[in-house]
Design a protein around this nucleic acid. Structure first.
Lengths: 140, 140
DNA sequence: CGGTTTCATAAAGGTGCCTTCTTGTGCTGT
DNA sequence: ACAGCACAAGAAGGCACCTTTATGAAACCG
């Protein structure tokens, strides 16, 4: 679950790390679920619809490694593993919530913008919008 | 630049769209730069270190399509194209900033957590941590 | 004995993002 | 005539991520 940050400069490496983390298809969904309280593996799996077992395991491991999630393995049998947000994880949940709220509120606006764009830039026309006649003006 | 959201339920589709958007390797870096003011294509390219021309073009198009960025083509020669955040884009920049601030403040904490994790879960040892002896207890 | 439960891991395959390299446009300055 | 500039778009290839399917451990139950 390493972010693809090959060329990112050192100063903003943590930024792009967090950004790819929450940009992952599933990570923020997991965090959001765990915001509601601790959960066992299979409960989480049922609540995060469509996630594969392998990816859920890997995502949780990554979150645990970064200190956002705590893994509590009850030595029963069959095994029972509980996952919960750490205080650090709850801190991350806060700006994440701000973003999801934005998405929820503005989803329609985004869709409208897309529709408008697709209409003006007639969608898959190969002869795309010939350039307006340039006026000869050297800039700079 | 379509997000990979195959199995996401309708209710949270805009959420995962926004999330993949800002989780893209470059998108939020671009937005952050544009927060500082309008910029021409090549200036942007120089400021977002390491981005390839192709991806910068594609990212800007996606942002324009979603209504976050405005593209202003001055009909000079050689062409001069200016990109700027729309008001909608500036709105998005706000929760994004909250997240980057979090990353900046807590980057060290994350790194420390990782180091601690790697030390306890001896890193790439194949014989990984044998399970504690389970106590026979049927749960529920 | 054989099937079930809970969690973890592995192999195989697909898909999309990203990178480098290359080509194109239309007027510029030399 | 020719190279250069500012921007765009294409092909080829790599790699990360994700999905499905299958396997394993270890004790339980019928």
């Amino acid at each position: 679950m390493k972010p693809r940050n090959g060329h990112i400069s050192d100063s903003c490496r943590p930024i792009s790390e967090v950004l790819s983390l929450i940009g992952n298809k599933w990570t923020s969904l997991i965090i959001t679920r765990l915001t509601e309280g601790p959960m066992r593996f299979n409960v989480l799996k049922r609540n995060v619809h469509g996630i594969s077992q392998k990816v859920l395991t890997a995502s949780l491991r990554a979150l645990e490694r970064d200190g956002f999630v705590e893994r509590i393995e009850h030595p029963t049998v069959p095994p029972s593993v509980e996952y919960r947000l750490t205080p650090f994880g709850r801190e991350l949940g806060e700006p994440l919530l701000a973003l999801t709220r934005f998405a929820l509120v503005n989803g329609a606006r985004m869709e409208a913008a897309r529709a408008a764009y697709d209409e003006t830039h007639d969608i898959p026309a190969p002869g795309a919008e010939p350039r307006r006649k340039p006026i000869p003006l050297r800039l700079n």
